[in-house]
Amino acid sequence: MAEGRILIVEDEHIVAMGIKRMLKGLGYTVTGVASSGEDAISKAESTFPDLVLMDIMLKGELDGVEAAKEIKARFDVPVIFLTAYSDSNILERVKKTGPSGYIVKPFDEKDLHSNIEIALHRHRNEKEDLEKN
């Protein structure tokens, strides 16, 4: 069974519920569901997730890319983007944030699992490297 505390950022709450169930089925702990960029930042601060699953199109001022940038900078939490968009503009912006993963909807449990596992693993390694140095 997989381990890890995951924050879901998704403004479609039903879709968020689906993701939540999938993650639970895979054995992860869901620390919360945020529906806006601002909400995502505050929940990232208060629930200490190991990873954030971030939808790009969000309600409110901040979109997923902005929120991810902020979370990464402030709390050093890896972010995997979930999006339907394969728009090149957005892709460019996403690239600049140094994402830990990019899952295009529609996705299934396997997509989620592999992406999350890789991201968590890489992040742990990076941390260990930092500590070694």
Binding site: E12, I14, R21, A84, P106
Partner: peptide, 20 residues
């Protein structure tokens, strides 16, 4: 189209949730 797709996505998720 994005909205329609999103709505269909929601329906799909609802079906997934219900099947649980």
């Amino acid at each position: 189209h994005h909205r329609i797709k999103n709505n269909l996505q929601v329906i799909s998720t609802l079906l997934y949730l219900e099947s649980g």
